[in-house]
Computed example of a mutant assay.
Amino acid sequence: MTKGTDVSDKKINGKLKMALELGPVVLFFAAYVKLKDQVFTIGGADYDGFILATAGFVPLMILSTLALWKLTGKLSKMQIVTLVLVVVFGGLSVWFNDDRFFKMKPTLIYLLFGGVLGIGLLRGQSYLKFAMEEMLPLEQEGWMILTRRLCGFFLALAVLNEAIWRTQTTEIWVYFKTFGLSAAVFLFFMTQGSIFQTYGLDEEEG
């Protein structure tokens, strides 16, 4: 390794990385399940369990993201954007005692990511390649196909989140947000195996 290697080359234990990325979400879900049927009076205002769980989730998300940055030396644009939206919309939900702000957050995240990928596609480029090229070495055509599919997938998730939070109970939305969205993303990439087989680059080519 050369003397000029920067902090972006820092490695982190995979289990610790997963704990930092998923920990705040798991703790939010646990807090909501424990507090969902309770109402707390603070400063003369009544707050339900969802708002209190959100109030705890925001600082946890900040701390976990800062820890990831400290340990790895870098953050992806997706992590930064997600943190900003969590702080802004989570903060608005707590400040105005209105859970709608926090429930809209996934919609805006997926619209933003889908929109950015869509703009790149209109310009004949794959912005996904710029973000994930080191992790997924693919031929250019493979990147374009994957980007088109992921763009449509993100936009579909945005619509789905809006439909769920506007028509279902808070409890159903929490389960959907915690498990449904994560499972959907996992299944999406699991079903893209044909792209990686057809357009994947060997290590020598990459």
Rank of each mutant, 00 (worst) to 15 (best):
78 M>V: 12
173 W>L: 05
13 N>A: 03
94 V>R: 06
69 W>D: 02
132 M>Q: 08
199 Y>S: 03
196 F>R: 05
14 G>N: 13
19 A>G: 11
116 V>W: 02
92 L>A: 15
120 G>K: 04
144 M>E: 05
203 E>C: 01
53 A>Q: 05
118 G>R: 04
68 L>D: 10
72 T>H: 04
152 G>W: 01
57 F>A: 12
77 K>Y: 10
170 T>A: 11
195 I>K: 00
69 W>T: 13
64 S>R: 07
102 F>C: 09
96 F>M: 09
59 P>E: 03
30 A>Q: 07
113 F>P: 09
196 F>Q: 05
110 Y>Q: 07
113 F>A: 07
177 K>M: 08
180 G>F: 05
177 K>L: 06
90 G>T: 10
111 L>Q: 08
181 L>I: 15
19 A>Q: 04
109 I>W: 02
190 M>L: 09
42 I>Q: 01
195 I>E: 00
203 E>F: 00
120 G>R: 10
184 A>K: 08
161 N>R: 11
175 Y>I: 12
46 D>H: 06
117 L>N: 06
10 K>S: 13
90 G>M: 06
92 L>S: 10
206 G>D: 14
44 G>N: 10
131 A>M: 08
5 T>H: 03
149 R>A: 02
99 D>G: 12
59 P>Y: 01
74 K>T: 14
115 G>C: 07
111 L>F: 06
146 L>N: 05
6 D>H: 04
116 V>G: 12
42 I>L: 09
114 G>T: 13
